[in-house]
């Protein structure tokens, strides 16, 4: 899966957070846009990046089972 397709497959908040980060937005701006506490932003970005990486590695349509 290419990056663009993977981004489009993410939950909207993750895609938006990564897009804003790529555009240079700081945590405050991302928090304001997504209506989150600013303390939530680092973990949100970490999760978004991890999910993007998973999509880029896994074959299309596969999602890991967690429990």
């Amino acid at each position: 899966m290419n990056r663009e397709t993977a981004l489009a497959s993410l939950t909207p908040a993750y895609a938006e957070a990564l897009r804003l980060r790529d555009e240079g937005a700081d945590h405050g701006a991302i928090a304001a846009r997504l209506e989150l506490p600013v303390e939530a932003v680092p973990n949100l970005l970490e999760l978004a990046q991890a999910k993007l990486d998973t999509l880029l590695v896994l074959p299309a349509g596969e999602v890991e089972r967690d429990g």
């Binding site: 506490p37 303390e39 939530a40 999760l47 349509g61």
Partner: peptide, 25 residues
């Protein structure tokens, strides 16, 4: 939370791919 002593995970809904995988299982 403000001290940064406790981590904050804002849980998002599942993506469409994840929903489909869940339904598949």
């Amino acid at each position: 939370r403000k001290e940064g002593a406790i981590g904050w995970i804002e849980l998002q809904p599942l993506s469409r791919t994840e929903v489909e995988a869940l339904l598949g299982q």
